[in-house]
């Protein structure tokens, strides 16, 4: 009963490997299918190598975040003014920065704050969004209106601007940046959760549960919440990439961890001043940020595609 929607999703959208093979091999003419089924599958098949690369890259990032010492041996803080601005070489694969620190070492050590930013900020945004969205979606009409108008006001600000406002009040630092980016994304999630909640709230299985006399809190916990949150969760995985970019933007603007912490955005901010004489200072963190955001987003999109139609 609970898993009405979920089971529907398995029915619709788990493209088993064999099926996919048939699909590509037998080309368009055989097996007349409804369009809605055929289209996502073809895309999935086409994306596969890219997806594998994205997956590998994310795995590598995870490793760098957990144990940067396995990938690089140097100290990201070891500075020596006499070794500054060395071009990429056998000794320094990505060159050295303005303080003579190894760029590759700093890049790898910068993975952890970036990933932390992406994940923690998403958790904060999701947590806050679910709380507000559920309350609004299940609460009284007046209360719902009040909360949602407030959320509308917040939505009028771009996320990054909202994060900047929060940082201005609380000061800079990695933790504050995480909280700022997370809180700034609450309104968006709140809106989504609320609309899902109102939809699920009227679903027949919820009606049935209520008719059966199940307690209100149990209905919310076992029936409404899981079904309302599922599509939001999937959207959130895509959001992780965006949060990493937002975190990099904040540290680019000088609101991240104070120097000498290795942060991609901060590395980029410094490097742009030396674009003409030391382009590797910009190239390395820029590529890292781009590849990370693309990989995480690609994985998130794939997840969404697989569950399309699940939450309605």
């Amino acid at each position: 009963m609970t898993d009405l929607a979920a089971s529907r999703s398995t029915l619709y959208l788990s493209p088993g490997p064999s099926e996919a093979k048939v699909e590509t091999a037998a080309a368009p003419l055989v097996v007349p299918r409804p369009q809605s089924l055929a289209r996502p599958k073809r895309r999935v098949a086409g994306l596969r190598p890219g997806l594998i690369l994205a997956g590998l890259f994310v795995a590598l990032l995870a490793l760098a975040a957990i144990a940067p010492g396995w990938l690089v041996s140097g100290d990201p803080f070891e500075a020596s003014a006499r070794d500054a601005f060395l071009a990429p070489s056998a000794q320094h694969w990505l060159g050295t920065d303005e303080n003579g620190r190894d760029v590759l070492t700093r890049l790898v050590h910068g993975v952890r704050p970036s990933m932390l930013m992406g994940l923690a900020a998403t958790v904060i945004g999701l947590g806050g969004g679910v709380a507000i969205g559920l309350t609004a979606g299940l609460g009284r009409r007046f209360f719902d209106g009040l909360l949602m108008r407030f959320v509308d006001v917040l939505l009028a600000f771009p996320d990054l601007l909202l994060a900047l406002v929060i940082i201005t009040f609380w000061g800079q630092g990695l933790l504050n940046a995480v909280v700022a980016v997370g809180v700034a994304s609450i309104p968006r999630y709140a809106r989504l959760v609320r609309s899902q909640t109102t939809k699920v709230r009227g679903a027949t299985y919820v009606e049935a549960a209520v008719t059966l006399g199940i307690r209100r809190s149990t209905v919310i916990w076992r029936h409404v919440l899981p079904n309302a949150i599922k599509p939001v969760l999937i959207l959130a995985t895509i959001g992780v990439g965006g949060k990493i970019a937002a975190g990099a933007s904040l540290s680019f603007l000088g609101f991240g961890a104070p120097p000498p912490a290795p942060e991609w955005g901060a590395m980029l901010a410094v490097g742009r001043n030396f674009l003409a004489n030391a382009p590797w200072l910009v190239a390395a963190p820029a590529l890292a940020i781009t590849l990370t955001v693309i990989s995480v987003t690609a994985l998130g999109r794939e997840l969404m595609r697989r569950s399309e139609g699940a939450g309605g």
Binding site: A87, G95, A278, A283
Partner: peptide, 20 residues
């Protein structure tokens, strides 16, 4: 990873046309 990143950086360098 070292090779990939170094290669990418070298590529970017070439693209910029910048000689250090």
């Amino acid at each position: 990873i070292r090779f990939t990143l170094a290669a990418l950086a070298a590529l970017a360098l070439a693209a910029c046309g910048g000689t250090p």
